[in-house]
């Protein structure tokens, strides 16, 4: 799993994630890409950070910027990580690339006291319009064609919240964005990205 594609459009979510991280915390970033978020959190929150990343070039990029990186395959789970060994486990714009959705969320909430998850909202209005016009959506946050997308799960804000309710996962906070700006009104329709702070109930 690789998330190199996820941060090409800027880092507006970094600031919001940083607000949920206390200084000096132990943080695990799953699918950490080139390590930009961890480097940002190291600078702004002095975190003790580790990234998990499978793509070799991203692993080298992390090492190059002085970010601890572990070349593990997330599809094989987090079984080697100890319970509650991180204050936060982050998965930024990568959940849609993981096949084992529920297991990975449960593992994040086992290893971390809290998890931070962000994902592109498939229910975003322009996406719905694309479908209505008969084509799969291609947008800033879903930049791939249907045949070359690394994304394997397509879901909306409403889908995600329904899953959390089913799995006994508490949503502690939600932020929704479109074009880098906060969205308050009907996020499932108007937000292109959603960011959550979640916890085991």
């Amino acid at each position: 799993m690789s998330s190199a594609h996820t941060r090409m459009d800027g880092r507006f979510d970094f600031e919001h994630i940083a607000r949920w991280i206390n200084p000096g915390e132990r943080v695990l970033d799953l699918g950490c890409g080139d390590g930009a978020l961890l480097a940002f959190l190291q600078q702004t929150r002095q975190i003790d950070g580790y990234g998990v990343e499978l793509d070799p070039d991203n692993v080298v990029a992390c090492i190059r910027r002085g970010v601890n990186v572990l070349q593990f395959n997330l599809e094989q789970g987090l079984s080697g990580f100890e319970d509650a060994s991180f204050e936060h486990v982050i998965m930024s714009l990568s959940l849609q690339t993981v096949r084992q959705t529920v297991p990975i969320m449960q593992e994040m909430l086992r290893v971390g006291r809290e998890a931070v998850v962000s994902f592109p909202n498939f229910g975003y209005k322009p996406h719905r319009e694309a479908i209505a016009a008969g084509r799969m959506p291609v947008s800033r946050h879903l930049p791939y064609q249907w045949f070359n997308s690394p994304n394997v799960r397509f879901f909306t804000i409403a889908d995600f919240e329904a899953l959390c309710a089913d799995e006994g996962i508490e949503i502690r906070e939600r932020r929704a964005f479109a074009k880098g700006q906060p969205v308050e009104d009907d996020p499932n329709l108007n937000a292109e990205v959603a960011l959550y702070r979640i916890k085991k109930q």
């Binding site: 132990r26 003790d48 070799p56 692993v59 601890n68 070349q71 593990f72 990580f81 100890e82 060994s85």
Partner: peptide
């Protein structure tokens, strides 16, 4: 090697791990 990595994580050491194809 992962055993070493996990033990280092337990102890809060800085560690990077590459699994080379």
């Amino acid at each position: 090697s992962r055993e070493i990595v996990y033990a280092l994580l337990h102890n809060g050491r800085n560690v990077s791990y590459a699994e080379i194809d």
